[in-house]
Design a protein around this nucleic acid. Structure first.
Length: 497
RNA sequence: GCCCCCAUCGUCUAGGGGACUAGGACGUAGGCCUUUCAAGCCUAAAACAGGAGUUCGAAUCUCCUUGGGGGCACCA
């Protein structure tokens, strides 16, 4: 069997991370089976269609490295791949259903339907269209038409029996047909609803497997009836679990929650992951671990490695939340592996944006030690500010001293350090390191260099956390290092008298 | 209200009747290393929602309860 799967978003905005995961699983499956991955745009709700959304979605997919074989931009043998460009096809098949007694015209107005729903709710009945237009006589129909009412086409759903939805992930799901309502297939604006467009397209695009989120599961029996009414073969279903909010309350959405309990921003759009300085390899790796597992206790892997192992049957049916902290860890792992030059290039835009005047050489020099400290690229801005900004930072005598190195000793230590830095040759990390270690051991009460080096770091960088001290001083250069030492010494003088 | 799905450490997961004193990862705690912070390494705490049943034997199968989620539009 030729595998053909599709990702079919509606262009109502950005690419959602949950959608990205659906796309990823489809992609993985298509690649594993040597099939085709198709991108189709479901834009039949023109009110919700947002200009530019198609591009935004494609950008998101491209960033993640999910390429498609057929789609709006690349075309393909079953196009067009944008539903509004296929409107005639749907109309044709909607009419076909009417002609074959599988569908009928309905003239109910929105008000009328709302009223019906209210009544049903008031009576605590199940809500759904009651089929009142099913048996209109030709005369009644003519009257409605004469009154200028524009009809919709509704499916004539079977009222008896049951329908089984076979699902690769969940097994057979049984529905009582009496619960399936006469859904609208063709709207009064002449465009199809999701149900019709989806079934018609999946058929003519020869889709073999439908992988989509759990939220669509209840539409499956209806769609199965449509396939039967048309006399078409139904695809194989596999309903993926939903991606939930970190709180566990509801499916992940833009609105619900902006921050997690630990204060992290809840990223939702793929573009937000990108802007947050996360690497696409990490995001995609992370996503693959949600609802699927590589096996062998392996957490970090590439898509190429995952692909041969991917099986639909292995997908976990339970909904899951996104663990953003784990994503950061994974991202850090990928950053550690980056070549210094690549990392410098990745980090530079953020430094530029922060208004820092970046010296490329100095930047490159501190990349190796930085790579172990970065979880997300933009963090580099605060880490490296000291390197590209000579504005004096706030420092107190308290910070420049230590319990094992009180005021007098600290002042003395910094004086010695200044002399040492001024004279040392060569001015490199190793020489500097050895000398400063020795100095440190001689100036602290406990004979350990740690307390001294900690304060020295503060004096050089203004930060408790920075690239390692010696490398930082080398990157800074002798002159600027001396200037910062002078600043500390001045601090002691000022307060001292 | 009706229908559907789901249920293993805080989170993501492994587990498909005996290999389970339930494994891994993130996070957390402690330790080592160390030039602070990281990174790395080691250790620890931490889960089969509850109840019946099937079986010699159940995290694994069935049912019920509970809890969570989704759906019930001329939205997708």
């Amino acid at each position: 069997m030729t595998v053909r799967v599709r990702f079919a978003p509606s262009p109502t905005g950005y690419l959602h991370i949950g959608g990205a995961r659906t796309a990823l699983f489809n992609w993985l499956f298509a690649r594993k089976r040597g099939g085709k991955f198709i991108l189709r745009i479901e834009d039949t709700d023109q009110k919700r269609t947002v200009p530019g959304a198609i591009e935004a979605i494609m950008d998101g997919l491209r960033w993640l490295g999910l390429d498609w074989d057929e789609g709006p931009d690349v075309g393909g043998p079953f196009g067009p791949y944008i539903q509004t460009e296929r409107a005639d096809l749907y109309r044709e098949w909607a009419n076909w259903l009417v002609e074959h007694d599988h569908a009928y015209k309905c003239y109910c107005t929105p008000d009328e339907l709302a009223e019906m729903r209210q009544e049903q709710m008031a009576k605590k009945q199940s809500v759904g269209y009651d089929g009142r237009c099913r048996h209109l006589t030709p005369q009644q129909r003519a009257e409605k038409e004469a009154a200028g009412l524009k009809p919709v086409i509704r499916f004539k759903a079977p009222r008896e029996g049951e329908t089984i939805v076979p699902d690769l992930i969940r097994g057979d799901i049984t529905y009582q047909n009496k619960q399936i309502t006469d859904s609208v297939l063709l709207k009064s604006d002449g465009l199809p609803t999701y149900h019709l467009a989806n079934v018609v397209d999946d058929h003519f695009m020869q889709i073999s497997h439908i992988m989509r989120a759990d939220e669509w599961i209840n539409t499956a029996p209806l769609h199965i009836h449509l396939y039967r009414a048309f006399g078409w073969e139904q695809p194989i279903y596999a309903h993926l679990s939903l991606v939930m909010n970190p709180s566990g309350k509801g499916k992940l959405s833009k609105r619900t929650q902006a921050f997690t309990d630990s204060g992290q921003q809840v990223l939702v759009k793929v573009s937000e992951f990108q802007e947050a300085g996360l690497l696409p390899e990490a995001v995609v790796n992370f996503l693959a671990n949600v609802g699927w597992s590589f096996g062998d206790d392996v957490e970090k892997f590439t898509l190429a490695e995952a692909m041969p192992r991917f099986e639909l049957e292995d997908i976990n049916p339970a909904p899951s939340r996104l663990n953003y902290t784990k994503l950061d860890w994974l991202n850090g792992q990928y950053i550690q592996e980056m070549e210094p030059l690549a990392l410098a290039q990745a980090v530079k835009p953020y430094l530029d944006a922060a208004g820092l005047e970046v010296n490329p050489e100095a930047l490159l020099a501190v990349m190796p030690p930085m790579s172990k400290r970065l979880k997300r690229l933009p963090e580099a801005v605060e880490f490296l500010r000291f390197l590209f900004d000579d504005a004096p930072f706030e420092l107190t005598v308290e910070q420049a001293t230590h319990k094992h190195m009180p005021r007098e000793a600290a002042q003395q230590a910094f004086r010695q350090m200044r002399d040492l830095v001024a004279a040392i040759e060569p001015y490199d990390a190793e020489t500097l390191g050895q000398a400063l270690m020795k100095l440190g051991e001689s100036v602290t009460a406990n004979g350990k260099a740690g307390p001294f080096l900690g304060t020295a770091r503060l004096a050089m960088t203004g930060q408790k956390v920075s690239p390692p001290l010696f490398e930082s001083m080398v990157a800074l250069g002798r002159e600027r290092s001396l200037a910062r030492l002078d600043a500390v010494l001045a601090l002691f003088e000022e307060i001292g008298d």
